[in-house]
Design a binder for these strands. Structure first.
Lengths: 139, 139
DNA sequence: CAGGATCCCAACTGATACTG
DNA sequence: CAGTATCAGTTGGGATCCTG
């Protein structure tokens, strides 16, 4: 079956028909509230490694709970490793895996598109919103 | 200020500090449940153009409401246009804009990474899950 | 045909309190 | 320090009904 963005589809007389598939999983995770922040922060850190409290400090507004959940998800996906040191006080180091490191440059290609088109997107939003607020209907 | 993925950050003694920023908006939208499906379907269609009912048929499981909302958001961002034909019965054509068309190849670069790493991600998840279910604690 | 309005449930997120 | 547990607010999404 043919694919687009890793998603199988069948072509019919009235157009293609898609079926749900894998890449959405990754994009959904990156699209959540904190994941990219965590990945970006680790990619900047020396050795691509930071401890819990450093991550928390580096991401303004993240709660302890959400940082933990975000890190668990990334660990589960094999994008980072968690190393626990049973000292007093305890210390936990989070480091990007090889796969985690390889993701950032790939993502960077797409965020480059976002950055260069962001002004257009904001302009389109402003235009759309100003069109909608007066009495003008969308027809 | 330095940036990563379009996100400004400041380097401190204990690591970088990020501030929330624009690219997340786009990734969050692409990460939602239907947006990429709609974009992909339009990118496959002749003239990058489909009518409402074609989109609905092409995306299994999408509700009328969610298709409408997804299309509105994409229209607002300037990624597609909506053209209403006041016939009986009415007809509405959705077509990718130039910016919308330019997004797909850029995204394709990243989804290529996803596809080639997907087996590793699934393996990591399976390993993580099987580690967790026995009595073994994560420490 | 296309989509607006409404209701409802599930999931995500945040705040707070507690622990090894 | 680095969590876990619990509770509450908010949002996303689906089902259904109705209309130009």
């Amino acid at each position: 079956m043919a694919e687009i963005h890793g998603r199988p589809y069948a072509m019919t007389g009235r157009g293609p028909v898609l079926t749900p598939c894998a890449p959405h999983d990754v994009l959904a995770r990156l699209g959540d509230k904190w994941t990219i922040l965590v990945m970006s922060l680790l990619s900047l850190a020396p050795g691509n490694q930071l401890r819990f409290s450093d991550l928390r400090r580096g991401i303004r507004g993240i709660s302890q709970r959400m940082l933990t959940l975000t890190l668990r998800n990334l660990e589960r996906d094999g994008l980072l490793t968690r190393h626990y040191f049973p000292e007093v006080p305890p210390r936990v180091e989070y480091a990007l895996t090889e796969m985690g490191r390889s993701m950032l440059p790939a993502l960077e290609g797409f965020t480059a598109w976002i950055r260069s088109n962001w002004p257009s997107i904001e302009a389109a939003r402003a235009a759309y919103d100003s069109r909608g607020e007066p009495g003008a209907d969308g027809t």
